[in-house]
Structures are given as structure tokens and as C-alpha cells.
């Protein structure tokens, strides 16, 4: 899976979860500050990412931005 494909799929999850427009999600989007995700929202995102990418993530991942999330997914896909 290419970086662009990972980002697109991640964006799809975020757009759906937070009712966003496509252009509201970029790699620099900060999940907490830009889209007001609280800790329960983040679990929901991680849960969906796990299902959609068929990977396992730790609950306490240090994920602040979309880039962090994409990096984590890439890392797990490669594992």
C-alpha cells in the first residue's frame, strides 16, 4: 500500500467519524486541536483503523496529527 493510499483511507475514516469535508483533513491536521477529538473519539478512530487496515495498534499510541497516525499505520503494515 502506498503512502497516498494509506492517507486516503485514513482520511476517509476521519471524514466519516467527525463529519468533515475532504479538504479539512491533511497530514498536518492535529486531531485534538483542529478537529476537537477527545480521548473516546481517538479510540473510535484507532478501532476503525485496526479493522480497516487489519493491523493492531496500542491504545496509548502517541498520536497527535494525521501524519502520526499514518506513520503508525505504515509501521504496523510493515511489521
Amino acid at each position: 500500500m502506498t503512502d497516498a493510499e494509506i492517507f486516503d483511507k485514513t482520511k476517509e475514516i476521519l471524514v466519516d467519524q467527525f463529519d468533515l469535508e475532504d479538504d479539512e483533513v491533511s497530514l498536518t491536521t492535529d486531531l485534538t486541536n483542529d478537529i476537537d477529538a477527545d480521548s473516546l473519539d481517538l479510540f473510535e478512530v484507532l478501532n476503525r483503523v485496526e479493522d480497516d487496515f487489519d493491523i493492531k495498534l496500542a491504545v496509548a499510541e502517541d498520536i497527535k496529527t494525521v501524519q502520526d497516525l499514518v506513520d503508525k499505520i505504515k509501521e504496523q503494515l510493515a511489521a
Binding site: L40, F43, E44, L46, N47, R48, E50, K56, V59
Partner: peptide, 13 residues
């Protein structure tokens, strides 16, 4: 767990 998503993650683990 305080939410469904966390419960599901825990079950998967």
C-alpha cells in the same frame, strides 16, 4: 472500558 470502541479493541487483543 468507557466506550464501545475501547471494548472492541480490548476484545480483539
Amino acid at each position: 472500558v468507557p466506550s464501545v470502541s475501547l471494548a472492541k479493541m480490548m476484545e480483539k487483543k
